[in-house]
Amino acid sequence: MNILSMMSNLSGMKRKRNTSKQAEGVLVALMLITLFASLRYDAFLSEYNIMTFLSYNSMFILIGLGMCFVIMTGGIDLSVGSVVALSSVVVAHASPYGIEVALPVGILVGVLAGAINAFVITKLKIVPFIATLAMMLGARGMALVLSDNQSVQVSWDSNFTQFGLGKMFDFIPWPIVAMLVAFVFCWILLEKFAFGRHVLSIGGNEEASKLMGLEVNKTLFGVYILSGALAGLSGVMLASGFGAGQPLEGLGWELSAIAAVVVGGTLLTGGLGSITSTLLGAILLGLIFNILNFENGLGTISFSAYWQSVIRGGFLLVVVVIQAKVINSKMRRTEF
């Protein structure tokens, strides 16, 4: 069995026909880009680059995973970027008590934000776009209030920064460990638990799900809380890894997360999705930045941060257009 089909099996298992193709596509792109980069840049495959790259991108992967669940229900969570910032500020204040306290506190901040989102969506019947937009503004404001509009220095006396900067077994950075744990958790949740099935069912046909007596509201609460919790964890990584709670960080991260999910082939209409593809999608998007940095390092061409954004936008568009073509051709085949 080649590695390609192994990876795509992992992504789909039973939802093979839906998502293995999309995982395969992302994986091929990922391998091609890696191959290109490893040939062109000497240090690309170095342990240092790989670990730094994954460690930094763990934050994006986490919120991407949460976003994937939200999008599978047919919703959207625009608040995650602000929640990351809020969480980072709160845990910076809590950092003197050590990571044992700060980590649960950071996650709790996200859980609260997610629960409020879910309450507004399910009980007050506000569409997710608007509900989470309000939370996006509210959480950002709260982060600025709690930090007095300045970055909040973390305590270097406690073990707090160990989480962002330390390594497990002196080898794997803790953020990568946390990200992998979250990935496995999300994968099992979607593929093996009734919860995952309900998420897809609600995204696929909410009316039918209600008729079947599925607990729609409960499931939506779970999904938005999960998205918030992962954003909260991401905030802990931010504060711990960069030594400060940063009220102005996380701007536009929700859009990067959505981009990762979309590049992974998950449709914004809901009912379909893959955790593995989302992980690969997030890595793929991060890789573009990584490569552009290397390119700048070579000194032949220099891309400013602005140009990098343009290139990433273009890349996203190309991927989505290709996907739309694949999906259209599939639809035509099944339409009798």
Binding site: R197, A208, L214, G271
Partner: peptide, 26 residues
């Protein structure tokens, strides 16, 4: 309000039954 079009025959068939064939949600 019947089928969940994206899901498989298997998944569609067991949606209502799911709580009865799961333990702690698994």
């Amino acid at each position: 309000d019947g089928i969940i079009p994206q899901l498989s025959v298997r998944e569609n068939l067991t949606l209502v039954l799911l709580p009865k064939i799961s333990k702690y949600g698994l």
